[in-house]
Design a binder for these strands. Structure first.
Length: 99
DNA sequence: CTGGTGACGGAAT
DNA sequence: GATTCCGCCACCA
């Protein structure tokens, strides 16, 4: 699968994440039929074009850990009603979204 | 071209 | 839980 299509697929999927929920890079990779490319999903979101207004703050890694160095992310999620664990991670058991 | 890297994940220990 | 490995692949020096 070409990179361009991969990027589009990621965008499409991220756009569907409901407010107040989160998902993982691996889950997105799985949903777009690239189960082994979680890492690329991370890359795509890392360099995402802000103009697209995609809710990329709703994507965390498989531990529920937020993006390193992006503090605003926690605030954005809190505004949507997401509560955090004492270690600052998302509680995936409660907020995980799988389409 | 080549090797290192990373908003990752899974399996083994 | 915590480490430690390995596979994955676009990107960049």
């Amino acid at each position: 699968m070409p990179t361009e299509a991969f990027i589009q697929a990621v965008h499409q999927t991220v756009k569907k994440i409901p407010k107040g929920k989160v998902t993982t890079y691996g889950q997105i990779a799985y949903m777009i039929n690239h189960p082994k490319n979680a890492r690329l999903v991370g890359n795509v979101l890392h360099r995402i074009n802000p103009k697209l207004n995609l809710p990329c703050h709703r994507v965390v890694n498989h531990s529920g850990r937020l993006v390193p160095g992006w503090n605003e992310q926690q605030a954005l999620l809190q505004k949507e009603g997401v509560l955090f664990k004492s270690n600052g991670n998302v509680d995936l058991r409660r907020y995980f979204w799988q389409g």
